[in-house]
C-alpha cells in the first residue's frame, strides 16, 4: 500500500493489532478451561459448546443479513467468544432448545439491538445467561456433577454448586463449619472437582488463560486483579466479623463463576472502562456487588448480575475518569 501518512509528527508503526487478532487471542486463552470442561463433563460439555457457538454464528449472520440488511460481521470472531462464554455459563445437561434461545437473546438482544459490536452496553453472553437464569430457573440450576467422561448428556446425576449448598444450609440454620466439611476441599475446587457450569469449575485453567492474555498484552491486569482483591478483602472482613455466618475469601474466589467473570467477562473491551483508573473503579464495584449478592441476596451466585450492573455504569465512569491529555498540567 502506498497511502500517505496523514498524521505527521511522531513516527508511527502499526502494531499489528486488529479486532480479529485480539479476539482469537482470547479464544486461545479460553482453550484450557474449555478442554478441561470436556474432560470433566464429557459429551454434555461438547454438545452445549457446539450448539452455543453454532447458533451464535447463525443468529449473527441471519439477523445482520436479512433483518438489518448490513454486511454480516461474523468474521471478527466476537460471535465465537460470545458462544464459548455463553456455554461456559451453562450446565452441561442443558436442553438444546434452551441453548438456542440463549444464543438468540445474547446476539439479538444483547448485541445487535444496540447496534452490533462496539455499541453494546452489556456483555452479550451475560445478557443471554441472565435471561436464561430468570426464564428457566429449574434447568439452569440443576448442574451435573463433574464425573469425567462417564457423564452422559441426557441423564447425568445433578447436584448443587458449593455456593448453593452454603446458601441453602445457612437458610436452614446449619452451621458453616458443618457445611464446609461437606464440600470439596479448596484444592479440589481449584482444580475443578465440583458441580457447576462448564467454565466456572476449573480455577487453574482459567488462571492459565489469564497469564496468557497478560503475557500477550490482550488485557491489562487492572480489572481481574481489582475484582479478585476486592472480593478477597470484603469477604475476609465479613468472615472475621462472624466466621460462623460468612465463608472466607478462598471459598468466595474459588467457587462460582468469579474467576471466569473476572478474567473473561468483565474484561470485554466494549463493555469495560477505557482508562486504568476507571477499570479499577469498575473492578471494585463488581467485587463488592458480587459478595453483597452472594451473601445477602436471593440468588446464590452474583457475578453475572454484578458485571451487568457495572456494565451499566461504564459510560459514567468513562466520563468522570478521563485519561490525562498529553501535555496537560498536573493539578
Amino acid at each position: 500500500m502506498n497511502t500517505k501518512v496523514l498524521v505527521a509528527p511522531s513516527p508511527h508503526i502499526h502494531s499489528g493489532d486488529s479486532i480479529q487478532k485480539n479476539m482469537y487471542g482470547v479464544v486461545f486463552a479460553m482453550l484450557p478451561a474449555l478442554l478441561l470442561s470436556f474432560f470433566y463433563f464429557g459429551m454434555g460439555a461438547f454438545i452445549v459448546t457446539l450448539t452455543a457457538v453454532a447458533s451464535c454464528y447463525l443468529f449473527e449472520f441471519s439477523i445482520q443479513k436479512y433483518l438489518l440488511k448490513v454486511e454480516p460481521s461474523i468474521k471478527d470472531g466476537s460471535a465465537l467468544i460470545t458462544g464459548i462464554l455463553l456455554a461456559f455459563n451453562m450446565p452441561a445437561n442443558l436442553p438444546i432448545w434452551i441453548i438456542i434461545i440463549g444464543a438468540l437473546v445474547a446476539i439479538g438482544i444483547g448485541k445487535l439491538t444496540f447496534g452490533g459490536l462496539g455499541n453494546n452496553i452489556f456483555n452479550p453472553a451475560l445478557v443471554g445467561r441472565v435471561f436464561l437464569l430468570i426464564s428457566f430457573p429449574v434447568q439452569m440450576t440443576s448442574w451435573p456433577k463433574a464425573l469425567g467422561f462417564e457423564t452422559s448428556y441426557f441423564d447425568a446425576e445433578t447436584g448443587a454448586t458449593p455456593l448453593a449448598i452454603i446458601k441453602e444450609g445457612l437458610n436452614k440454620g446449619d452451621s458453616l463449619t458443618d457445611l464446609l466439611a461437606k464440600l470439596p476441599s479448596n484444592v479440589d475446587m481449584f482444580l475443578g472437582n465440583m458441580g457447576g457450569s462448564l467454565g466456572e469449575v476449573a480455577g487453574a485453567a482459567l488462571i492459565l488463560g489469564l497469564i496468557y492474555m497478560l503475557f500477550k498484552k490482550i488485557i491489562t491486569w487492572h480489572i481481574p486483579v481489582s475484582i479478585i482483591a476486592t472480593v478477597a478483602i470484603f469477604s475476609g472482613i465479613l468472615n472475621l466479623s462472624n466466621p460462623e455466618a460468612y465463608a472466607g475469601p478462598a471459598f468466595h474466589i474459588l467457587t462460582g463463576g468469579l474467576l471466569l467473570g473476572a478474567i473473561f467477562m468483565a474484561t470485554d473491551y466494549v463493555t469495560s472502562p477505557m482508562s486504568n483508573k476507571g477499570m479499577i473503579i469498575y473492578g471494585i464495584g463488581i467485587g463488592i456487588l458480587t459478595v453483597v449478592i452472594r451473601v445477602f441476596g436471593a440468588y446464590p451466585e452474583g457475578v453475572s448480575f454484578a458485571i451487568l450492573i457495572m456494565n451499566g455504569f461504564v459510560p459514567l465512569i468513562n466520563v468522570s475518569v478521563k485519561p490525562k491529555r498529553f501535555g496537560e498540567k498536573r493539578k
Partner: peptide, 9 residues
Amino acid sequence: ITAATISSR
C-alpha cells in the same frame, strides 16, 4: 418442588 426446596419446606 424441583429447584425450590426452601419454598417447599
